[in-house]
Write a protein that binds this DNA or RNA. Structure first.
Length: 300
DNA sequence: ACCCAGGATCTAC
DNA sequence: GTAGATCATGGG
């Protein structure tokens, strides 16, 4: 399948309001699915039941209803320069879901359950550090560590809102101090080392443009604390490789029990053949459905 | 006290 | 290249 991100940003009608903007004609988006499928860690529900969070140094409140995406706290200009890409609004997810639904019944149900998932195009450094923290950790604690990290080392952008730290701000901190501040344990060493390497050897979707996924995976694993699973998370959630397929314990169980593949090499060979360019999307639908308890897999 | 969490690293074979 | 122990931290 060819890349479907060819439609121009003018595909949506955008209206500026007192609080922010409204984008009309947005399909295949559900804030709960989007923010709770495990791809991001800085979006939370507020007292009104809306998701608030920070991305790209910008604070926003997200409301979605009947094809209208409201982004409170932003401008038309910021929408076109940042949020459009962040929410991957140029991609036709209906086509992706149709194609994946035809694969098998299990996949069809996963897609139906997480119908409002989109893969956010997140910032490389934030994604790198966040998923280093994610290793052998649980989601509530990952979110706490990252929040602590931002409060202590990120720029304050509003009253009680902090941006994700810049690499320079983490590259020279004392590991013990970092550990005391963010409570990420032994991962603090990885964070400092990775920050230093990122400064001298950064990466981005653009940098990977002419690179194949295997080479990109080897590149990512040069960062301390980045193994096979975390590498694919970073490549997928920065929008660099949509055929990346992170295998955590849950997705691993699906692969073993349903598709009868087990080793990393076996799994990747299978998903590249079976899901092709849509492997990354498939992974997210599967992960979300399993984690939410909608689909089950044998644990024995 | 023990086990687990979107695993990765280090060591030994 | 691969099986096994170890790695902070907090919640159940």
């Amino acid at each position: 399948m060819l890349d479907t991100v060819e439609r121009v940003k003018g595909m949506y009608k955008v209206e500026e309001t007192k609080k922010g903007i409204k984008v009309f004609g947005v399909k295949d988006l559900n804030p709960k699915h989007l923010f709770e499928c495990g791809q991001c860690f800085r979006w939370n529900l507020n007292s009104r039941g809306h998701y608030i969070g920070v991305a790209g140094g910008r604070y926003a409140e997200i409301v979605y209803s009947d094809g209208v995406l409201e982004i409170i706290g932003t401008t038309k200009e910021d929408f076109y320069t940042f949020w459009f890409d962040y929410f991957d609004l140029g991609r036709d997810y209906s086509r992706i879901k149709e194609e994946l639904s035809e694969k098998d019944e299990y996949m069809r149900q996963a897609v139906q359950f997480g119908s409002g998932i989109r893969i956010l195009r997140q910032e490389p450094f934030e994604t790198l550090i966040s998923f280093i923290i994610s290793a052998n950790n649980n989601i509530p604690r990952i979110k706490k560590c990252i929040e602590n990290l931002c409060r202590n080392y990120g720029d304050r952008i509003q009253d009680d809102v902090y941006a994700f730290p810049k690499p320079q701000n983490l590259a020279n901190v004392c590991e013990n101090e970092l550990s005391d501040c963010i409570k990420a344990g032994y991962r603090c060493n990885y964070i400092v080392e990775a920050s230093r390497l990122f400064i001298e050897q950064p990466f981005s979707k653009e940098k990977f443009q002419e690179t194949d996924i295997e080479k990109a995976r080897r590149f990512m694993r040069e960062y301390k604390g980045v193994g096979p699973k975390v590498a694919d998370c970073i490549l997928l959630f920065t929008g660099s490789f949509y055929n990346a397929f992170p295998v955590d314990v849950w997705v691993g169980k699906v692969m073993t029990n349903l598709y009868k593949v087990s080793t990393q090499k076996e799994i990747d060979g299978f998903v590249q053949e079976y899901f092709g360019a849509l492997a990354g999307f498939a992974q997210q639908y599967l992960f979300y459905a399993i984690r939410e308890g909608f689909l089950t897999v044998q644990t024995t």
